[in-house]
């Protein structure tokens, strides 16, 4: 059986050269056994057009660099096998993030901003004591925290979220999930009212309209709907208590 001919339609735009309007460029390559989009895009860059911009780091679906729209579906390019796609493949950069060029978007700045706004660190007055044993924690709780912490900040959930696309300040499912991770963690001493200030508003949980594109998209399978609902319930109670 002869290998398939793959036709890529790739979004091209360089913000430094606004005179060239955004367009899609077509590339044809031959499919290889076990080919991923990581392999395919590098082949295009190495052999056809060395100026094509895209981001890969770990190429093993761990680092979250390569989120993009693959035939309209947001996912990690590194873990997408070409054999799961039709021979016409359209690639667009993730929406909602600042476009750096072609398929490359600035997720880093967005996520750092989100982390600052949700104050994504352990809030505590306890000084670390080098000589003391660690605090005990039930392993099931540790697993539960890890479940939320598995988010790799690829931005796919943000890219597909309508709200995040039209409301710049919305922290997205990833942000709300982040807050849920700290809510679960007994080492973080914030009370419900402090969390309410962070996430009990339209930029946070009450901005979510419940379309669940995030959950349908998350490439690492974080149970986002459950995390969103958990925060919503917690914040509803907190709102009730609030003076």
């Amino acid at each position: 059986m002869s290998p398939r001919q793959l036709t890529f339609h790739i979004f091209r735009y360089d913000p430094d050269r606004p005179e060239v309007k955004p367009h899609t460029q077509t590339f044809k390559i031959e499919e290889e056994m076990g080919m991923t989009l990581f392999v395919a895009l590098n082949k295009i860059r190495d052999e056809i057009d060395p100026t094509l911009k895209f981001d890969f780091v770990c190429r093993a679906s761990i680092c979250g660099s390569c989120g993009m729209l693959i035939n309209g579906k947001a996912s990690l390019a590194c873990k997408t096998l070409t054999k799961t796609l039709p021979s016409d493949i359209t690639l667009f950069p993730l929406p909602a993030f600042k476009l750096l060029g072609d398929l490359s978007v600035d997720t880093g700045t967005w996520f750092r901003d989100m982390s600052m706004r949700t104050e994504s660190w352990i809030h505590t007055d306890v000084e670390f004591d080098e000589t003391a044993q660690e605090e005990k924690m039930d392993d099931d709780l540790a697993l539960e925290i890890y479940e939320a912490e598995r988010c790799i900040e690829c931005g796919c959930c943000v890219g597909v979220c309508v709200t995040a696309n039209i409301r710049q300040n919305f922290i997205g499912a990833t942000g709300i999930n982040r807050v849920s991770r700290f809510m679960l963690d007994p080492r973080d001493k914030r009370d419900e009212q402090e969390y309410f200030e962070v996430v009990g508003n339209d930029d946070g949980i009450f901005g979510c309209v419940g379309l669940m594109a995030c959950e349908d998209t998350c490439p690492v399978g974080v149970p986002l709907r459950g995390q969103l609902a958990y925060v919503r319930r917690k914040m509803t109670v907190a709102g009730w208590h609030r003076k």
Partner: peptide, 21 residues
């Protein structure tokens, strides 16, 4: 402008719930 973004977005990501919204 937001309307345009929303409609184009739904078209792009082909997501049932987003259309339903």
């Amino acid at each position: 402008a937001e309307q345009k973004v929303a409609w184009r977005h739904a078209k792009m990501i082909r997501h049932y719930d987003t259309w339903s919204w």
